[in-house]
């Protein structure tokens, strides 16, 4: 039986429109990043990437991502366990609250941290008298990065753990397994791919965050400049090739993220087909 939109003409027209628009709107920018980065040759690209300030920015960006991921993992797993394994008043509210970082503008996210922990804030003032500086230093960058990335792991885990139910874990506990053993031997194998995907998304956002970080970092070259901030400075200094060299590194991470996602989905589809 024929389905809606199966007529050859409609079909070709719609596929053609989708391909042309996606090529112009999504693929072209991706190609342009690498074309611009390499526009003056591989040697110039390499010189831009191995520049001291760029290397420092890469190091800082990786450090922030490496510190962000474990925090988001612990929070994501705890929250997902809580809202999918127990019922209690306020469960829905918790699930809505974790969406706050998705709705709040990154600039506003940076601002609220600056107001609280900056020198004029009520916590920042106290910290200042004890000579602890969080804002315009790497701890501030870490804090806002955790703010903007914390929903990803929880968001991946909650629907999956909800669908899987808690029967297997209940069986393990009833048979005498401790909570930790149950989690490690029963829950973790069931959620490991979603967990991995959550980590990949967290990493992609942590590496690329711009608005929130630019408010709290102070963007001091060689000190508090992350890769996206460094790229902005180069671009404003009319060093487009240098900016696009940094952009190409970040775009490469984005491509790895997409490949990992496609791989994980392919794996899930294959397992479903065999199940």
């Amino acid at each position: 039986m024929r389905r809606i939109g199966d007529a050859p003409l409609i079909r070709r027209l719609l596929i053609g429109a989708a391909l042309v628009l996606s090529a112009l709107f999504l693929l072209l920018p991706l190609v342009a990043i690498f074309a611009q980065a390499l526009s003056e040759g591989v040697m110039v690209f390499w010189a831009n990437v191995s520049n001291t300030f760029t290397l420092h920015a890469i190091g800082l960006t990786l450090m922030i991502a490496l510190l962000t991921i474990p925090v988001c993992l612990v929070f994501g797993i705890a929250l997902a366990w809580l809202v999918t394994r127990f019922s209690f008043p306020g469960r829905r509210i918790l699930q809505t609250l974790i969406d706050i970082p998705f709705a709040v503008s990154p600039v506003v996210a940076g601002l609220i941290y600056l107001l609280l922990y900056g020198r004029n804030g009520w916590i920042g003032g106290w910290l200042d008298t004890h000579d602890i500086q969080l804002m315009f230093a790497w701890p501030g960058i870490l804090m806002v990065t955790i703010f903007v990335t914390c929903p990803f792991v929880a968001r991946e885990l909650i629907p999956l753990m909800q669908a899987q139910g808690s029967r297997e874990e209940e069986a393990a506990v009833t048979l005498g397994a401790s909570g930790w053993t149950t989690f490690r031997r029963v829950t973790l194998p069931n959620i490991r791919w979603a967990l991995l995907y959550g980590v990949i998304l967290t990493n992609a956002r942590a590496v690329g965050e711009f608005g929130a970080v630019s408010v709290v970092s102070g963007a001091i070259r060689g000190k508090t400049n992350t890769l996206p901030l460094h790229l902005e400075q180069l671009y404003q200094d009319y060093n487009a090739v240098g900016a696009f060299a940094c952009a190409a590194l970040l775009a490469f991470i984005a491509l790895l993220t997409l490949a990992a996602k496609a791989g994980l989905e392919w794996r899930a589809a294959r397992r479903e087909a065999f199940a």
Binding site: A204, G208, A247, L250, A251
Partner: peptide
């Protein structure tokens, strides 16, 4: 668009 940093 989700994977690519916004500044890029």
């Amino acid at each position: 668009p989700f994977a690519l940093p916004t500044a890029v």
